[in-house]
Structure formats: C-alpha cells, structure tokens
Design a binder for these strands. Structure first.
Length: 430
RNA sequence: GUGGCCGUAGCUCAAGGGCAGAGCACCAGACUGUGGCUCUGGGGGUUGCGGGUUCAAGUCCCGUCGGCCACCCCA
C-alpha cells in the first residue's frame, strides 16, 4: 500500500480502461451530434450562489454534498455537483435567448458530490448530459429523452425502459402538495423517522421509502398525475405518446420524483437493476422555472444527465465493450548499439507515415526486444542490423504467424498498409 | 450522515499468537544469431496507518484511513 492514495471516492483510470472511456465518450458525442446538439464547456466551479438558487437550498446536494470553498479573494465557489445549473447560467450570461431557438447543448463533464462512496457512486463522476433551452413543447422533452435512450441502445443495452412521471407546475403542484401533506399528516404516527423528516424537507421523496409500513401508506397517497392541471396533463400525455411512437418503452411511474427544486412537469429515469442500489443510469426532466431563478428571461428547458461510470460498469458486465485498436502496430528491434541510430530513424519514419510504431528504450538485447514486441500487442516486428541483409532492407516479421521476409525500408509503410488493409487487428495489448 | 463486512508483494490469495509464503505479473539468463511454450535465477513487504495487550501480534483490542454492502441520496 503506497503512502498516498487518491482522495476518497475518486479514482485513477488506467489503460486499458482509459481506452474504453475514449470509446464510450466518442459514442456519446457522436449520438449528440446526430441529434443536433452542440457541445458546451462550462467551468468546473461556479459561484456557490448558482447552485443554491439553481439546485435548491433544501436539497441534499446543496445542503450536504457540495465541495464549497473560499477562493483567495473570499468568494464562495463550489465544484459543480450537476450540470444543468451551469449550462443555464451560461445561457443567461451570454444572452443565448437571442440565438435561434431552441438552443440544444450537450456536455461530458466531471461532477463532484461529497457522498459516501459505493460501487457506482463516486465523489467525482462523469456525466453525459444534454439540454434543450427555449422550447416548451413536448417535442423537446421527447428529443432529449430519446437521445438518452437511443445512446444507451446504440451502446448495446436492450430493455431500456423509461420511468415517466409529471411533477406538475407552479399552477397545479402547490394544490397537490397541500393534499399530499394533509394525507401524510393524517398518518403521521405510523410514519418512520426519515419520512417524517422528509414531510418537511422533501415531501415527495416519501413515495420512495423502503420502509414497508410507509410504503403501505404511500400506496394510498394522492398521486400528482391525478392533480395535474389541463396543460400539464396534455403535456404529459403528449410526451408519453410520442415516446411510444418511437417504440421506446415507457412505464408511468408516480414514484419518479426529482430531488431538485427546479423540475417542472416531466420527470424521467432509466434504471438498470443489476447495479444494485445505485441503479439510475440517467435521470432528467423539465425545468421551466430555472432561467428566471438565475436572473434570466423566462426560458423553458428540459434535459438529462447520465452517469457514465455506471454505464461503463454495465457495458463491461454485459460484455458490450469492443476490443480497441489503439495499441502500436510495429515494433522496431535492433541488434545492438551500432544499429541504434538506424532503428531510431526508422521508427521516426514509420510514425511520420502515420503508423503506430515504437522501439526499444531500455537498451535491451535483441531477444528482450522481441519479447517486448510480442507483449506490446504489435502485429509486426521490424529487425534492423541482421547480418547478410542487404543495405536498405530490413526484416519484416509477422508476430502472429511467425514468418518473416525482406522489405526495402522505404517501402515499409506501403507494405504494412496493404497487410493491415484486409484483416482487422486487435491491439490494446491486453 | 447511520449500520455492517473487509484491508498481507503490482494483481489474486495463503499463513488465525511463535522465522511472512504461493500463483500470476515484472527483470535477467538457458533452449546459440529472433518473441510466444518450457526451464533456471532475481528484484520486490515497516502485513493500509497509529496506538494498546503480550516474553512474542498479519493474527487479539482501540482509533484512523480506504474499499465494498445496505440505508440516506442520486447519475
């Protein structure tokens, strides 16, 4: 055990896992581009105020889980615990309401929450997220949610099922909350302590309780869906119907409740049960009130955030991560010091020709170089300095087949191009 | 934040009060100019860290740090 470890809940990503990340992220970007989303990169830190207002002061995230610190001038800054607040802050700050609407943005970014770590829950994690700003139509909800679902499907996951709910809007939610509170107040003496606490802090979360007696009470609780105003009702029905038109499995789930205050109407989640308690692959919804809270013009918005650590965990478990070809193709070996310069030149030449090539850096014997070549995963070894080989030629050895032949050095790139052309190769070296 | 399980070599794990080990991995050599297979040798550890009990502590006790599981919360 080394003296220093990565901070709790944070981890190093080493090869070949780092290569799987490159693959995953590039797939996410590709899907976002197909849907017409463009990348936004916001600062890793924001003024704490942005999250207090944007995420909500009563939420666990803001109250217990933020990395908040004072900079040298005494300003209170926080590492972002989620992506939406920063994106909307940027939308307002840069006057994006003057851009052609809607504005569709995506990000792949690190988030920080001071939470108790567990597999699939990290203090530093990566989210792929997307937001549609300036569109109140159900079509916008369907656009982002389908991006999330289709991305998971494109990665190979079957059985992606969207749990869909509506949390209403400022017109209908207060009335519902009133009825909701009254219902649970009436059963107060039978509630567990957690739920009593939540009745004050985050009442809708009671619906999520794992305590059986509370669940029983919750089953009889009034449901937001029965209290939606006509506009919210129509919106919910349209989102649901359009997702079904796309063939996306939808399950109406009154228990999907977002922990963040700015959500209105649509609330959606996708779970992957095999992940255990940390099973949410993505969560998202509509936040029509957020831009105003952050000092901007009233701007409807809808988006999602997807936890990529969890997605990658699932993909690996399901064997859906392909072999990656980022390893080297050619390893140049030489037979001792007199040939070092020539080997060096040759490696440089091959790299210049676009091949992934490397040579010995340890002054090793020819035998050890071949061993290194073999273990590097390279398909080809080139031998420089073998006696009886005419000047200008080198030995090209196929490490898979075990055969070798003479090739003029300057023709190596062309020969290798031809050889590699036909057969795909694996080369991550693992 | 609450409760539980677990920390021994780079990795996977033995040793359960009495000399800290194996397999894999890594390095070198042999099988004669050239890898994979096989064989030989080598480097690697304050047993996560700190304290305590004991003649003696990976081993028992306490604390702490870290991982995992459930809760909480969420992606």
């Amino acid at each position: 055990m080394s003296k220093y470890q990565a901070p709790r809940g944070m981890r190093d990503v080493l090869p070949p896992e780092s290569e799987r990340w490159q693959w995953l992220v590039s797939r996410c970007r590709e899907m976002a581009h197909r849907y017409g989303y463009r990348e936004i990169r916001t600062p890793l830190v924001e003024h704490t105020e942005v999250f207090l207002k944007g995420v909500g002061e009563g939420t666990d995230i803001v109250e217990h889980e933020m990395y908040t610190f004072a900079d040298r001038a005494g300003r209170s800054l926080s590492l972002r615990p989620e992506g939406t607040a920063g994106v909307v802050r940027a939308y307002v700050e840069h006057g994006m309401h003057t851009w052609p609407q809607p504005v569709k943005l995506y990000y792949v970014a690190e988030m920080f929450r001071y939470d108790r770590p567990q597999a699939g829950r990290y203090r530093q994690h990566t989210q792929f997220g997307a937001e549609v700003l300036g569109a109140a139509e159900p079509a916008a909800d369907v656009d982002v949610l389908s991006l999330a679902v289709r991305t998971l499907q494109a990665l190979g996951l079957r059985e992606v099922r969207v749990h869909l709910n509506s949390v209403g809007d400022p017109k209908c939610r207060p009335g519902y909350l009133q009825v909701f509170r009254e219902y649970f107040q009436a059963h107060y003496d039978r509630l567990d302590d957690d739920s009593r606490r939540r009745l004050v802090t985050n009442p809708l979360r009671i619906l999520d309780s794992k305590v059986e007696q509370t669940r029983e009470i919750a089953r009889g609780a009034p449901r937001m869906l029965d209290y939606l105003c006509p506009e919210c009702r129509a919106h919910f029905d349209a989102v649901r119907r359009h997702l079904e038109v796309l063939g996306i499995a939808v399950e109406v789930d009154p228990l999907v409740v977002r922990g963040l205050d700015y959500y209105t109407r649509t609330a959606a989640e996708v779970h992957y049960p095999k992940l255990g308690a940390q099973s949410t692959l993505f969560g998202g919804g509509r936040y029509d009130g957020l831009a105003e809270v952050l000092g901007g013009p009233p701007t409807p918005g809808v988006g999602f955030g997807m936890g990529l650590e969890r997605v990658l965990m699932v993909l690996e478990e399901e064997g859906l991560v392909p072999e990656l070809a980022t390893g080297i193709q050619v390893y140049v070996c030489h037979d001792g010091p007199p040939w070092e310069d020539e080997a060096l030149r040759l490696v440089d030449f091959l790299r210049g020709a676009g091949l992934r090539a490397e040579g010995d850096l340890l002054g090793r014997s020819l035998r050890a170089q071949l061993r290194a070549a073999s273990r590097s995963g390279a398909r080809w070894a080139v031998l420089v300095g073998v006696p009886e080989v005419p000047r200008g030629q080198v030995v090209l050895r196929d490490l898979q087949v075990g055969e070798q032949r003479l090739v003029p050095a300057e023709q190596l790139p062309r020969v290798l191009q031809e050889e590699e052309g036909g057969c795909g190769r694996t080369g991550a070296g693992s």
